[in-house]
Write a protein that binds this DNA or RNA. Sequence first.
DNA 1: AGGGTGAGGTTGAAGTCTCAAGTACTGCCG
DNA 2: CGGCAGTACTTGAGACTTCAACCTCACCCT
Lengths: 171, 171
Amino acid sequence: MNMAPTSAPAQEPRWLTDEEQRVWRSYIEAVTLLEDHLDRQLQRDAGMPHVYYGLLVKLAESPRRRLRMTELARHAKITRSRLSHAVARLEKNGWVRREDCPSDKRGQFAVLTDEGYEVLRRTAPGHVAAVRQAVFERLSPAQQESLGEIMRIIAEGLQPSEAGADLPWLR
Amino acid sequence: MNMAPTSAPAQEPRWLTDEEQRVWRSYIEAVTLLEDHLDRQLQRDAGMPHVYYGLLVKLAESPRRRLRMTELARHAKITRSRLSHAVARLEKNGWVRREDCPSDKRGQFAVLTDEGYEVLRRTAPGHVAAVRQAVFERLSPAQQESLGEIMRIIAEGLQPSEAGADLPWLR
DNA sequence: AGGGTGAGGTTGAAGTCTCAAGTACTGCCG
DNA sequence: CGGCAGTACTTGAGACTTCAACCTCACCCT
């Protein structure tokens, strides 16, 4: 985790400073409240949680409104299992349809239906407004830029690919 | 949501700009990945999800290691119902104990047990390390400060108290 | 061709969260 | 005092998530 003289001794934990703790606490609070807020907003107005809404958006943005399951999972940063359950639910709503992949018999496409697209069209403005009101309206341009950069850095550091990229000593 | 001439017309939605979209996307990705990362880390090392760990921390920080249920819920930014279930589970683990409030017979204290404190003592260093590695080690001091301020602003805007504070026209 | 390895995706059970409803008590007002 | 409105907390059912199998098919190697 950090440069210690080769084969380090018991290493007493390095705590967060008071300031770091304050930052971290604020982060947790903001994220918890925001997730909650958006989940409720969307559950009320669109009948689905935020993650599911995000899936529809990804599909809507994709060519032919479809994406392979694994692709969609990767975009949305969720596990394939979670996606599988989610798509099952969205399929019951008639908002998504599964389609076999012709070139790979194991593959499945998730396809946004017209009905699904319609839900999106109807509910997107409200959702955008909620995001605006909770986030963008409150931040200066400089803060918005900063937020973007910070989140990019954090996300990048956690990309599944790095799952050992920092453990070179494991061969 | 924004200044329109009194009694606005149908109001076409105000979308996010490209840059705002990028910021928002990064935010979602970072938050999703981080939550996931920490949940797994704690599930593996401490046998509980991140939220539950947070509850133990709040209790540990409180005088006499106890907090009224409602207080705890408020601190942790979760509903009382959720807390109730959570404490039930933590109680099964022997990490928390409920105690009646003498001055209000409806009230309950959640109390951190010695065993619970011990779990915390054992697992906190690993958790702090994970947070450090995922967040603080990657951000400059200026970015850390900025993050703190941004998150404070967002959290403040969503504090349950504001549940109508911005709808003065509803009397 | 045959067999191994592993990728793509699903499944079921156990855990967690939400929502609406319920119980028990407090505080207040007449 | 008696009631009644609101506070504190819990409960149960249904929705969602996780984890560890599991199945099918693709690819590669001999």
